[in-house]
Write a protein that binds this DNA or RNA. Structure first.
Length: 273
DNA sequence: CTCCAGGCTTTAG
DNA sequence: CTAAAGCATGGA
């Protein structure tokens, strides 16, 4: 029900504020974190980070605790890129979460051309409206809705929750997943999975990369958004403007470490660490 | 007022 | 194929 871990490469603030998750909030001495229909309480004293939950196996995997992040940091430093070395130093407490697949699909559809505080609000209202109420030692909460629940509402519902023009993207995708499931998306390579995700209305290259990276563990994905574009220009001296080419530039440079590197860079840049 | 936010779909050329 | 318009919303 409770386990602790060396805090050097597991800092709750870094993990939660780096932009990969939209459902968490300050709680007691740390944070309350929600994933699908589960929740946990995570906090640190600076030396050890503690996770308390009713499902330790789930959150052990969720926080990617089987992976050695000291190896990832040292590999990232081996690229000898100044901006990346700087990001590694400031953001070394980041870990890549293994999140719920369907939750990632809807969350990142909502994220497009949007800002993180507003994304959080929209997702929170969707959970309250359509999610199942769950008991927890830390207090009741609402689960992320199933695709069936999401498919039961029309675009107007999501519009009313502030989703804007993404309203039909949510309901269309929910209806498709309710009908098809997502099992056909499992056990695919990154390239194959991305190709499949691009067939959903509302999922483009960047959103697909985020879903691959955060929902399906495809660490060779490198999402390129407005912050990465800015960083590419300012810190890598890049001249390309086409996001697809910028994506290729980074993935061919960082290979299997692309996803980790992307998070270190994104977090350090966006949070101005 | 304009500009921007973890961009995408649609339409025009 | 690439380029650009249009898109909801809210904060700076």
């Amino acid at each position: 029900m409770k386990f602790d871990y060396d805090a050097t490469y597991f800092n709750p603030t870094d993990v939660l504020e780096c932009g990969q998750i939209f459902r968490f909030e300050p709680f007691r001495e740390g944070y309350r974190v929600y994933s699908a229909d589960k929740d946990c309480y995570v906090y640190t004293d600076g030396a050890k980070t503690v996770v308390e939950s009713g499902d330790s196996d789930y959150f052990y995997n969720y926080f990617d605790l089987a992976r050695d992040y000291s190896e990832i940091i040292s590999h990232a430093r081996s690229f000898n890129v100044a901006a990346l070395n700087d990001a590694c130093e400031k953001a070394k407490g980041v870990r890549l979460l293994n999140q719920n697949r369907e939750e990632m699909i809807y969350s990142f559809i909502i994220s497009q051309n949007n800002n993180i505080p507003r994304i959080k609000g929209i997702i929170s209202r969707i959970c309250t409206g359509l999610g199942q109420k769950m008991p927890s030692p830390f207090g009741e909460f609402y689960a992320f809705p199933t695709s069936a629940a999401l498919a039961s509402e029309e675009p107007e519902y999501y519009k009313a929750l502030g989703a804007g023009y993404r309203d039909s993207f949510i309901s269309d995708t929910a209806k498709r997943i309710r009908a098809e499931g997502i099992s056909q998306l499992e056990n695919l390579s990154y390239d194959e999975l991305k190709k499949q995700l691009l067939t959903y209305r509302g999922i483009g290259p960047k959103v697909a990369d985020c879903i691959c990276l955060f929902g399906f563990g495809k660490r060779d994905a490198f999402p390129v958004d407005t912050w990465i574009e800015k960083l590419y220009r300012e810190d890598f001296g890049g001249e390309l403007t086409d996001r697809k080419k910028i994506n290729t530039y980074f993935t061919s440079l960082f290979g299997e470490y692309s996803g980790y590197v992307q998070q270190y860079l994104f977090y350090a840049k966006r949070s101005n660490l």
